[in-house]
Design a protein around this nucleic acid. Sequence first.
DNA 1: AAAGTTGCATAAGTTAATTTTATACAAAAT
DNA 2: ATTTTGTATAAAATTAACTTATGCAACTTT
Lengths: 299, 299
Amino acid sequence: MISNRHLVFMEVAQQKSFSKASQALFISQPAVSVHIKGLEEHYKTKLFERKGLQIELTEAGQLLYNRLLTVLHIQQETEFDISVIHDQQQATGVLNLGASTTAALYILPKVMSAFHREYPLVNITLLNRNSEIVLQALLDKEINIGVTEEKGQLSNITYQSFLKDQIVAVCSKHNPLARKKPYQPKDLLQMPVAIRERGSGTLEAIKQGLQRNKIRLNDLQIKVRLGGTEALKNFLLESNCVGFLSTRSIAKELQHGELTILSFDNLRIERNFYFIQRKGETSELNKRFIKMAKSIYNY
Amino acid sequence: MISNRHLVFMEVAQQKSFSKASQALFISQPAVSVHIKGLEEHYKTKLFERKGLQIELTEAGQLLYNRLLTVLHIQQETEFDISVIHDQQQATGVLNLGASTTAALYILPKVMSAFHREYPLVNITLLNRNSEIVLQALLDKEINIGVTEEKGQLSNITYQSFLKDQIVAVCSKHNPLARKKPYQPKDLLQMPVAIRERGSGTLEAIKQGLQRNKIRLNDLQIKVRLGGTEALKNFLLESNCVGFLSTRSIAKELQHGELTILSFDNLRIERNFYFIQRKGETSELNKRFIKMAKSIYNY
DNA sequence: AAAGTTGCATAAGTTAATTTTATACAAAAT
DNA sequence: ATTTTGTATAAAATTAACTTATGCAACTTT
């Protein structure tokens, strides 16, 4: 659909280098030069500013790149839509997902694998970044669907609720705290706790959940801050601290009895996951993925 | 932007014929066959149903054609937007207009010529059909901007008011009716009249204008119905009838004194012209054309 | 029903476009 | 000053696209 020449241009724009683009496309560097030259003659304007060893998109180049991105997505949607007419098992396409940690690690893999079984020829990728970057990637048309924890208000984004996630306090089964139950929210103040790093979506949810019980995060006896869910889990196994984790992320550890949930009266820390898409670009592939995701988690 | 192969496909889809497409594209018929075959192999499905001497788009083919149409418009917009960055006089692009008779004959030519002076390399075409067909052409993405007399309510169309048009009663300067003035609306019932054919937008406006004065079209002494404004004008010049015509269409005849306006108390027949565009597709080229059109007529 | 027409498909040869190899040239880094 | 990094250009080689010639099937005509 998009001409070869323009695909070369896109690669150069992404790599910000003729030679790197040539390597990525498995063609020689002069071939790239000739293509760009051809385009520049066609549009009668420079598309890249050559600044010594750097290149940079000109205004015209940036405009062209943006338009090509939208065309590329139409192309990918079309590939899928055509192939799905004939046979689901033969449907080809590209689906780029983006999600923040919990969703990317503990929620989406299950959906992706199910989706892959139904549409084996669809190429699925998953970008694992924080909500902010996921949103930006969506706006930049780098991903087709994002899964985030916050429901924003952007007018050119559609928010679609996916599932509820519960965050619970857990500790190692060897931890003496694991015995007595149930606790009151106030009891938290006496416990040594370990939490995720600043900026994590989980931490934000915890903060808001505690606030509803008039507890500030700073009032807790925070012993350690750990970067990443897995690190936190492993730390809890070996320490006497209590941690807050999404139930989605500790399914395995609960099953094996390695971690125990501390039950609290009147303390519910919840958050929602949302699908985000660009408004007006809810393709057939997007729809089917979201439908399957919902059917898996909302039985 | 769109590959050659796909452009050939589009031509075949439009012409509904491999050989006619080949003639339109100035290539041989086998070249077309090879292209279509290539696409069908790529998409792993037939794009045309070969039914004897006819061909017809398959479901997949129709889907592909629709997507390619939207991409083609992105491509054309891009050509314009890039070239206008550097120099207005060098801006290339395609602007397909559609309008019903009065606008197409007496309003748009002036705008088109002014626009052509400012953007000499933009290719402008004008489709002259009735409002209904103009709307359909817009929906089918055959035209970029339509000018119609009715403000509809379609949710995927943007309506933008352009200018007011006044319809007046006129007759030849030799007609005795041309002397006495002013008339009352009721006097119309005594006059021999000539009007446009059924289905014309002008006729519709007249009908509604008269209705406001409690006069039905059928109450008039309709002597003749003529297809087309020019025919009606020429008829009036040679007859004793009174006709209703848009002031826009008789500027020249009034100037030369060939036709005279009959002034009526309390009888105003007006209609509005609207620009119609597909929602979300108001390209830079569209914007500039509409802006110029408004500046010409709304000083 | 036979012959002619219309229209797409296929094959072989030609032409045009793309790519590679080799090399030049400019700017930045060492 | 020399080396490194990165793009531009030219000529040769490769590949893709096109044309001519011809076949075949379906529909028309007589």
